[in-house]
């Protein structure tokens, strides 16, 4: 049941508890309890909104930075990751397999702001060996949702 609840919330975090209960064939209290438990267990870590910022007046740039580091003895990558993810500008930090160690996703108001952050804050960390910054030009799909393409039902209105 938990995976079903999670699948529904992942698609629509604003879904009505009562609707959820009906759709899953369980009681509203059961749904509420499961969700509360999963929040406590940090299985559910938050409820964000998918926003197409391009359609707002807000200036925003997103960059994906490949970071190579030297892991620290006894601590591996975790303590370096912690040093990196503390910055509010950074939205995601992933440890990667392959040619570099971390993918860091950062949001800023301008390319200049991001560039300054990388050169002043990120690249200067002791363990960081190198960074390679890629700016996002356009977002087509985020979190499973295609942005900016309205879905139109083109089926005939009545069919057998």
């Amino acid at each position: 049941m938990r995976d079903k609840i999670l699948n529904m919330l992942e698609k629509n975090s604003r879904i009505d508890l009562k609707d959820m209960a009906v759709m899953l064939g369980i009681s509203e209290a059961e749904v509420a309890n499961e969700i509360a438990d999963m929040e406590k267990e940090h299985i559910i870590c938050g409820y964000n909104t998918i926003i197409n910022w391009d359609k707002t007046g807000e200036e925003k740039v997103t960059a994906l930075i490949e970071v190579k580091v030297t892991p620290q003895r006894g601590l591996g990558f975790d303590s370096i990751a912690e040093r990196i993810y503390q910055y509010n500008e950074i939205t995601s930090v992933y440890l990667m397999s392959g040619g570099f160690d971390f993918t860091v996703i950062i949001e800023g108001k301008s390319m200049k702001e991001v560039a300054q952050f990388v050169s002043n804050k990120l690249a200067t960390l002791d363990s960081v060996l190198s960074t390679s910054t890629h700016f996002v030009l356009k977002k087509y799909k985020d979190y499973g949702k295609v942005l900016d393409v309205p879905v139109k039902d083109e089926r005939m209105l009545v069919t057998p």
């Binding site: 039902d153 005939m156 009545v158 057998p160």
Partner: peptide, 8 residues
């Protein structure tokens, strides 16, 4: 419509 006989 809620009248169609094909998947959405």
């Amino acid at each position: 419509s809620l009248g169609v006989g094909e998947p959405d």
